[in-house]
């Protein structure tokens, strides 16, 4: 923990994340105050076009007179949910596969790792687009989360497997085997704790890519039209031809996506430096 605090970039990441968590927390307040602030259904009866910031709408409104601040706050909720759930799914599967492949070795390992190779090669965004086309346009946000989670595990599996391979050769595993611990017990009690920190690192990187992927999908029009995510805000702006005429509309969501991705990435790197101290160390000059 002390090491983490020394890492300024990691702290910056945590700060940004806390800010977005706070935004997600206050998101329900605005619509409760006045229904015109509902991110999707609320429309200001006095405004019919995209309008710049005003007292009534601190960030302006979109082309239907919907409040942009409220959409931005709601987007924080969606993004955190997508990032955390999708990353948790991916890390869970990836850690499981990595443990099994690394520990068992042999044919199982070979097959699983070839599967990982193939999945890692596939261009992810086009693949998710294809899948979403099959599931029908306008799939729900949960489908998006599920697909991102189910396709995100191969990278994790590869790293975890490598770690398991080094752990398996350590004397304490041999010792456990010597006094008769079963295979399952060795995996769960002796090897898994050694790879869990790494899983947490990848949880953070996974959240970064999940937020990016959801935003990208929504942006090119394959997201959930009933959920106002940041990517969806950009898509509406793009689709209604306000890209070059409404900076108050296009700037905040893009900035938010980028900042949240940066935050997850920085936190991941800071944790990585804790696990691998040599990344932190000063070179001997």
């Amino acid at each position: 923990m002390r090491v983490f605090c020394k890492n300024k970039l990691g702290l910056l990441g945590l700060g940004i994340l806390a800010l977005f968590a706070a935004m997600a927390g206050v998101a329900p307040l605005l619509p409760a105050l006045d229904p015109i602030y509902h991110p999707i259904e609320g429309m200001d009866p006095r405004i019919f076009t995209a309008s710049p910031p005003s007292w009534r709408h601190p960030l302006g409104t979109d082309a239907w007179g919907r409040d942009l601040l409220s959409q931005l706050l709601h987007g924080a909720q969606v993004a955190l949910l997508v990032g955390i759930v999708a990353a948790a799914t991916a890390v869970l599967i990836g850690t499981g596969v990595g443990l099994v492949a690394g520990y068992l070795g042999g044919g199982v390992d070979f097959l699983l790792m070839r599967l990982v190779d193939v999945l890692l090669i596939l261009p992810l965004i086009p693949l998710i687009m294809l899948l979403s086309a099959f599931l029908g346009r306008g799939m729900s946000i949960w489908n998006v989360v599920l697909i991102i989670g189910l396709l995100g595990w191969p990278g994790v599996a590869r790293v975890i497997r490598a770690q398991v391979l080094t752990l398996r050769a350590r004397p304490f595993v041999e010792a456990a085997r010597a006094y008769g611990a079963g295979e399952l017990r060795i995996i769960v009690r002796h090897i898994a704790p050694g790879v869990l920190p790494l899983s947490f690192v990848y949880m953070s990187f996974g959240a970064n890519s999940a937020v990016f992927l959801e935003a990208a999908l929504s942006f090119i029009g394959f997201g959930d039209p009933r959920t106002m995510s940041w990517g969806m805000m950009l898509q509406w702006c793009f689709k209604t031809g306000h890209t070059f005429s409404a900076p108050y509309w296009i700037l905040p969501p893009g900035l938010a996506i980028s900042a949240l991705c940066l935050a997850f990435y920085l936190i991941g790197r800071a944790m990585e430096e804790i696990i691998y101290p040599q990344l932190r160390g000063w070179p001997k000059v």
């Binding site: 970039l9 970064n208 990016f212 935003a215 990208a216 942006f219 090119i220 950009l234 296009i250 969501p253 893009g254 996506i257 980028s258 991705c261 940066l262 990435y265 920085l266």
Partner: peptide, 11 residues
């Protein structure tokens, strides 16, 4: 890193 994680289409 900021450019690395920027939302590319928006950028």
């Amino acid at each position: 890193l900021s450019l690395y994680t920027v939302f590319l289409p928006w950028f």
